[in-house]
Design a protein around this nucleic acid. Structure first.
Lengths: 244, 244
DNA sequence: AGGCATCTGATTGTATTCAATCCTGACACA
DNA sequence: TGTGTCAGGATTGAATACAATCAGATGCCT
């Protein structure tokens, strides 16, 4: 399995990984604006490590497309791919449809006792908890944690699919999508979240075609919702300059 | 300012990038088999650098999905995503269709003299050379360099599209696709290569819809070709979605 | 003999250190 | 005043050194 998908309490041993996630989070949630030049020394101080793990994190983020680096010129935060939003959603639709279909098909075969089976059930259980957690959030007033839960749900489905390569792609795309959303609250959140249960039900039922259809619709609605909200070039990337 | 920026001999300054490309090449072309445990010291010796650039390269390759790492446990080469091949092609089809469409749309707007224009023309010229080079290869007996040229063509189209995020996705996917192909020679090569000119012509004409359609057909044919060649029966999801 | 603790070798994680390069600003000169 | 040149500091690139951790072998105890 790819890097720890679980909130394992590996406090100490996973320094460069932790730094990478922290930096990415800072980029997505606006603490580091596009175009910002990030120096290794500053990041090292910020996260209380030396420059070596910072450099490794920056290389990984470069591969993920969040920063750009040139030799001896340092790294800068990439631009928010606002004008690529629609196409990102289209790719995501194809990708997540395939993932849902695979997850359903995998679910229909019973993994009774082999090792993959216990892994599958563990992820499946986490997803159930995640859905409940999301319901609680949706019922409340503060929708802030919803985007994070949303990503975790979709990554969970990807994990159920058992496809490492496709899951790596989703991780990359969903990061970008969340980046696009980060300047705004997902006001389709409530309805969007309820659709998750439908998808998961189809997967549990082993109905591959239905799972694929529901997931495609779910993502497609997100896309049209995004277009409606940020219509006509008024995309979040345009107005990030307000604070210095 | 003088129009010619001297093509810098970036031999020396780009060490970790070079190592990364080398390792990936070794993985794709079988010198490093899936499951192989790769130690940093050995790679450092092999490429005549210290462990630091090797570690950075491994982190980037981990983000790209070619190796898997666990803290203190080292890195191993990932499995070839053979059973995910069909879905990878489907995602690639959505992705490259969007890229071709964007490239055509961008071509139709004239980039007369601004800076992006010269970049665009440079890439466009490289693509012309690339097509000729591929024709020469196709005319000969040794088709070995064709897969590499193929990837470079598709990445060139992505560059024309001007979409950094989508291009990063393509880089990741095309690596996997090439990995799948690496065990065999692409026997559809000749016909496949000729289709490239059609796509590029549509882009030059600024016909977005046609470029998208041709690219989709091109990738789709690759997909069916792959399925036919590699005993499609083993693919867990065999629903033929007949198009056109 | 079999199981378990421990020890040793190898490997990874990180910090420190030095060399190479770029960027900024000042300065001299036309 | 404008321009070209050149220091100096700042920053990245890379190597070495050392600490932390794991895996396998060894020997002891039951």
């Amino acid at each position: 399995m790819p890097p720890d998908a679980r909130p394992r309490p590996d406090e100490l041993p996973a320094a460069p990984h932790r730094v990478k996630d922290e930096i990415r989070r800072d980029i997505i949630f606006g603490s580091l604006l596009p175009g910002t030049r990030v120096t290794e020394a500053a990041l090292a101080r910020k996260y209380s490590v030396s420059r070596v793990p910072v450099r490794e994190a920056l290389r990984a983020l470069e591969a993920e497309g969040f920063v750009e680096s040139k030799p001896y010129a340092g790294s800068t935060v990439s631009d928010i791919p606002a004008d690529e939003a629609d196409d990102l959603f289209l790719v995501r639709e194809a990708l997540e449809s395939a993932l849902a279909r695979r997850a359903a098909r995998r679910s229909s075969r019973q993994f009774a006792e082999d090792e993959q089976g216990v892994e599958w059930r563990r992820v499946r259980k986490d997803l159930a908890l995640l859905l409940d957690e999301g319901d609680t959030v949706v019922a409340g007033d503060d929708l802030l944690p919803l985007p994070e839960l949303n990503i975790r749900f979709h990554l969970g489905i990807a994990e159920l699919s058992g496809s490492a390569s496709l899951m790596a792609l989703l991780r990359q795309i969903s990061g970008k999508i969340e980046w696009l959303y980060a300047t705004d609250v997902d006001n389709r959140g409530k309805q969007s979240w309820s659709e998750h249960r439908l998808v998961l039900a189809a997967i549990d039922a082993g109905d591959a075609a239905e799972a694929e259809r529901l997931m495609a619709r779910h993502v497609s609605r997100s896309r049209t919702g995004y277009r409606g909200r940020f219509a006509g070039g008024k995309v979040p990337g345009d107005e990030v300059q307000e604070t210095g």
